[in-house]
């Protein structure tokens, strides 16, 4: 709680010192990545259900928000809420068809991946999504339209970022979090101890996908555009799961660390190579291999171990 508040206050001061729009954009990108990573972390890290198609929920939120604003004239704040609802509905559907039949591990991952792909292809052919040419949001600056200046967007995503982290913290410190962790560690033992495994997995995917849906809405307000590939493509799914895994899945700060590392690495890679397309993906691949090989608990877990050893040594010497 204290650490999250401190981090939020420090970040809130960033626009006062950072004048460059490019740098502010980088901050927005990191916060946005961390937000989406945290959404994945609720289902994948806390509850242990690895989704490979979280773009599905992000994309459903993104499209529903844009369509409701553009074609139905809904006010943007209402579209934000509906993005959460749409994400949650998609999540409950995927959850029901997988968890009801006991799919877990790689089978669940494949179902989510397939679901995102189905949505991507559907969005490319049906007309109400704008098919392959995508969907535009007209520019209407103003808080009631959830459209801002660069620093305004920074505070918009900062608020979402803080809220999702407070949510995860609240889950971790409650019965809900304990039961998620029990399911992640051993489903059979959890059910013996009174945990309704199906119900709690559904709760996990409900929260996770609603959060992802809101992330989709933010994307639409920030970039004013989506197409099927942006909304449902594998790139989003992969980034959403890489950041928590690199940083430390199931921890509160792991997704933030992972998002910072990924974004900074991508940015450095771009400037070092003069913008070779796809270079960041090569970097991501190398990082994943190194992390999985040497720090299977992610950077947070990997760094905590030597740190704990260093702190234990003096007491061990006296004892």
């Amino acid at each position: 709680m204290v650490r999250i508040t401190t981090l939020a206050l420090l970040l809130a001061a960033v626009p006062l010192f950072v004048q460059s729009n490019h740098l502010l954009g980088l901050f927005i990108g990191v916060l946005f990545s961390a937000y989406l990573a945290q959404s994945w972390n609720i289902l994948g890290g806390l509850c242990g259900q690895f989704s490979f198609g979280h773009a599905a929920f992000f994309g459903v939120g993104l499209y529903s928000s844009l369509i409701l604003q553009v074609d139905f004239g809904w006010p943007a704040p209402l579209a934000l809420v509906s993005a959460a609802v749409a994400g949650a509905v998609a999540g409950l559907f995927v959850g029901f068809v997988s968890f009801r039949y006991g799919l877990r591990g790689s089978y669940f991952a494949l179902v989510t991946l397939a679901f995102a792909e189905i949505l991507r292809m559907t969005a490319s052919v049906v007309s109400f999504t704008g098919a392959g040419s995508g969907k535009y949001l007209p520019t209407r600056l103003g808080i009631e339209h959830l459209q801002f200046s660069k620093s305004g967007y920074f505070y918009f995503i900062l608020v979402l970022f803080v809220l999702v982290h407070l949510l995860v913290l609240a889950i971790q410190n409650s019965r809900l979090g304990a039961r998620f962790a029990a399911i992640r560690e051993d489903e059979e033992a959890a059910s013996a101890l009174g945990v309704d495994v199906f119900r709690y997995k559904m709760i996990a995917i409900l929260i996770s996908s609603a959060v992802a849906g809101v992330g989709g809405c933010f994307y639409g307000q920030y970039y004013f555009y989506t197409d099927p590939h942006i909304a449902f493509g594998a790139a989003v799914s992969i980034e959403m799961l890489l950041a928590p895994i690199i940083g430390g899945a199931g921890t509160l700060f792991g997704p933030i660390v992972g998002a910072v590392v990924l974004r900074v690495a991508a940015e450095l890679g771009q400037s070092l190579t003069g913008g070779v397309p796809g270079f960041n993906l090569i970097l991501y691949g190398i990082m994943v291999i190194l992390i999985v090989r040497y720090m299977p608990d992610g950077l947070i877990g990997g760094l905590r171990r030597p740190w704990a050893l260093m702190r234990r040594r003096p007491t061990a010497a006296t004892g």
């Binding site: 962790a181 029990a182 560690e185 051993d186 059979e188 033992a189 013996a192 101890l193 009174g194 199931g250």
Partner: peptide, 13 residues
């Protein structure tokens, strides 16, 4: 409530 012969601790907790 039952226990398991092959113990099932929640290892990381």
């Amino acid at each position: 409530v039952r226990t398991f012969q092959i113990v099932k601790p929640f290892g990381k907790l």
